[in-house]
Each structure stands twice: as C-alpha cells, then as structure tokens.
Nucleic acid binder design. Structure first.
Lengths: 193, 193
DNA sequence: TGCAGTTAATGGATCGAGTACAACAAATAG
DNA sequence: CTATTTGTTGTACTCGATCCATTAACTGCA
C-alpha cells in the first residue's frame, strides 16, 4: 500500500524542528526565539520551516492538531482518546509544565481556546439531534472543555505518570454526570468511556 | 467627579477608527485592508492607531472587550447582560452579519474562541465551590458557550430586531435546564435571569 | 501674555512573522 | 542517461507591531 519514496528526501521532520524549538523556548523564551533560530539549530534553512509548520506556534501544537484532524473524520470519542494516549503530545505537555519558564503562557491560552472551540463544534455537529441546536452547542462546549481540562491535568502532573486516556475518560464521566445529554442523533457518538 | 480634560485633545476615537475599519473591510476585505489604510481614512497617522487599539483585529471586538473587562469585576451575570444590551457591539454585529463579504470569517472564529474562553474561566472562578473543580470548569465553559451563542444569534438576525439581553437570558435558561448546577460558592453569581 | 505641566499625535526606524517564487539538489523509474 | 517528482534554498517583499524622540495642542497659573 505504502509506495516507495519518490523525489528528494526530506531534510528534517516536524519532531526534529519541534524539539529544537522547545529547547530554544526553554533557553531564551518563546518571544525571543525567532524562526531563524529554530531552523539554524535544526540545520535547515528558514524557508524549509514553513514546509513543516504553519507558523512558530504550531511547533507546540502539532501533535494535538493531528489528533483533531483525525477527530474530524471519526464518530466516536473513546477510540480517539485512546489513539491520542498512544501518541501523546510531548511538546505540548512540556510547554504546559514549563509555561512560565518558556514564556508560552499567552500562546497556550490562545492556542487552547482555538482548538477547544474547534473540538466543541466538532462534537456539536455529532450530537446535533432533533432537540434544541442551542443545547447541542452548549453540550459540545461542555464536553470539549472536559477533554481539554483532562489534557491539562495530565500534562501538569508530569505527562507519563498517568495514562492520558483514563484521565480524559474520567473528565468525560464528570461531564456526563452533570446531566448533559450525550445521546447522539443520526451519528453514533458515544462520549462515555 | 469627572475632571476637565487636560493636555492635547484626542484627534480620533475608537468608534471613528472602528467605523473606518469596517467600511474598508466591506470594500476591500479584511486581509487586504492595512492599518495604514484605516488611519488614512480616519485622518490620523498610523502610529496613533495603536493608541486606541491593540491591533487591527481589535476594531471588531472592542465593544465586547469592554464588556468582558467590566465582567471581570462584577459578580452577577444578569446585570452584565443588561449593560451589554444597552451598549451593543455594533461593529461585531456587522462583522458577524457580513462575515463572508468582509473576509472576517477566520478572525471571527479565532476572536470568539479567545473571548469565550476568557469568559469561561471568569465564570468558573465565580462558581468554584466545594465540589469538583473539573465540574466547575465544565459548567463555566457551558455557560460561556450559551452567552456567546446568544450574541451570535442576535447578530445574525440583524441586531436590533430583538433585544440582546433577552436572547442571552433565554440561552442561559437553556443551559440551566440542561442540569448544570449554577449554584455559587462564596460569590453570589446568579446565571439565571 | 507668557511659562510650566500634561496629554496626545507624529514620523522614522526597526524587528520579525509569513508569503511568493524562481533556481537548485537529490532521489526514482525507465 | 534522462525525465519526473519532490524537497530545499535564497531572495525579496508585505505588513503587523513596537519603540522612541520630537512636536503639537490644551489647561492653569502667575
């Protein structure tokens, strides 16, 4: 299925660049680190950077963004969480745990808001049923908040000591117990574990 | 109480600049409109722009941002909604209603995510009680989603035909009926109308 | 009238993110 | 050895945003 590589091989990778970026964030801070700095350390040109990332901020988020990209094609939350737990967002966890030292507090807030909203609309579309669309939107926001709260808790307590998927499952259970309906419409989303 | 104006009078205002900006967004689109374009039309220098706004995007959001700034010092949601209804965010409503034409679809999404998250943490802090902090976070996100959904519905149906505060009150009622507790801890927040 | 103090506008310089693109390099298939 | 594909590199450019020294407009007081 996977065809043989054609053309010039890639000179770097998202992981390499992200790692270089995180190192520099720790050393100099996020704002003081330029894209040129990152590529210099990674051993590629500045232009190349934008073949791997949309921008500087994406170095922190790309693992989670992959998850969200997949999530947009999947209908069940539980397998998604499991898959995320298998490919945990290292760089994000590092950034959350060392937010002040890296100077990424602001970027973490904006980036999270962005992606949590994305996930919220995703869930809302899935649970959109015969009922009030407003309620669907509220419910989507609540479950998205639960998932992201879980990710943050997991990262704050040193990603690795606990399993990410169980933490997310617990958070979803809390949301479920709150009384918010999670019954899907035509889709077959199950937010419970 | 209000002392007499001292020093050089202001050559412009947030409203003037925001109006000029919205005009240009409609004519040329958001991306094609530079800050220099806006200040040229408003009759001030480019530097002056940044005495009034943090950036280009703020021209759309400043009315709502004022509301959020006040909200951070208030403990009750209902009076806040009433005050917002008295000073409705014109430029934001215009942007929502003409998102495609103005090319602000992306900026609206990111800007909303940002501010909705801000409001969510604000509410979360208020309802933080003896119970699970995770539940407080989920509830805060749900109520914030309700409020913003209300604002959007209000703007989409031609801001003015309906009262903003009643729409928000209805949205909050939906969130309340969903089963999410809105009982405050030490604070005295009341999310109901 | 003139001077001091205050507040705001202005112009210029600078930085850095992000985009565009043409030229070049490294691989494969035949 | 050539055509094709894919990726890298350097360059130039736009624009948002910040900084800062200078200048302008206004008030209050002598």
């Amino acid at each position: 299925m996977t065809s043989v590589a054609r053309g010039r091989p890639q000179a770097s990778s998202c992981d390499t660049l992200a790692e270089a970026a995180c190192e520099l964030f720790l050393e100099q801070g996020y704002d003081a680190t330029t894209v040129a700095d990152i590529t210099r350390r990674a051993g590629v040109s500045r232009s190349t950077f934008f073949n791997y990332f949309d921008g500087k901020a994406a170095t922190i988020w790309f693992a989670l963004d992959c998850f969200l990209a997949e999530a947009s094609t999947t209908h069940r939350l539980a397998p998604m969480a499991a898959h995320l737990a298998e490919n945990p967002p290292h760089t994000l966890a590092l950034a959350i745990a060392n937010a002040e030292a890296m100077g990424v507090t602001f970027e973490l807030a904006t980036g999270r808001a962005q992606r949590q909203a994305e996930l919220a609309t995703l869930i809302t579309e899935r649970i959109h049923t015969t009922g009030d669309p407003l309620l669907a939107e509220i419910t989507g926001a609540a479950y998205a908040a639960a998932i992201f709260a879980g990710i943050w808790r997991w990262a704050e307590r040193g990603a690795g000591s606990h399993r990410l998927d169980t933490i997310i499952a617990e958070a979803l259970a809390v949301a479920r117990r709150s009384g918010l309906a999670d019954r899907p419409g035509r889709g077959d989303l199950r937010v419970a574990v």
